[in-house]
């Protein structure tokens, strides 16, 4: 993969929609020195308006669905959505719960799925690279 069109650092916003924290801490672990995704300019930002990528963890509880939708709409185009963890992909262990409206792709369109309970930092970084490729294509088509 050559990084030509998407010349900026990739910024991600993380939203927890009822996750158990397992994937959430692995996202932070992916950024901190052992895995150090920050050396590529990938970092977590505090506002969805600054983000290129949305990292979603958790099976989407009824209370968090409107918040998730709003965050997705607040992000500027082009954007990519990564679901981290089994429960966001299919409901996972929580699939029978009465309080879920998820999985995530019921609420917002998803580009990359990172499986695992909890997903390993390596897998999360791979997912972010896939999302980067998608953004690369979109930017390439628009002529950067």
């Amino acid at each position: 993969m050559g990084i030509n069109a998407f010349k900026r650092a990739l910024w991600a916003f993380h939203v927890n929609t009822g996750s158990c924290n397992g994937c959430d801490i692995e996202i932070i672990a992916a950024l901190t020195p052992r895995y150090d995704a920050e050396r590529f300019g990938i970092k977590l930002v505090g506002s969805p308006r600054h983000a290129d990528v949305l990292l979603v963890t958790g099976p989407v509880t009824r209370q968090m669905a409107p918040a998730l939708k709003r965050i997705y709409e607040q992000m500027a185009d082009p954007k990519a959505v990564i679901v981290v963890g089994n429960c966001g992909i299919s409901g996972g262990v929580f699939h029978e719960s009465y309080n879920l409206v998820g999985p995530v792709d019921n609420i917002i369109p998803v580009d990359v799925y990172v499986p695992g309970c909890a997903a390993r930092p390596e897998a999360i970084i791979y997912g972010v690279v896939k999302a980067w490729e998608k953004l690369e294509k979109v930017y390439g088509a628009e002529g950067g």
Binding site: G18, Q63, M64, E96, Y98, N99
Partner: peptide, 26 residues
């Protein structure tokens, strides 16, 4: 309440206690 997943309910409705134990990890 934003993070409520109904774990106790799911655990009580699983097929057997070993399956519920895996819920407890989550």
């Amino acid at each position: 309440g934003q993070n409520h997943r109904g774990i106790e309910w799911i655990g009580m409705n699983r097929d057997n206690p070993v399956q519920s134990l895996r819920m407890a990890s989550r």
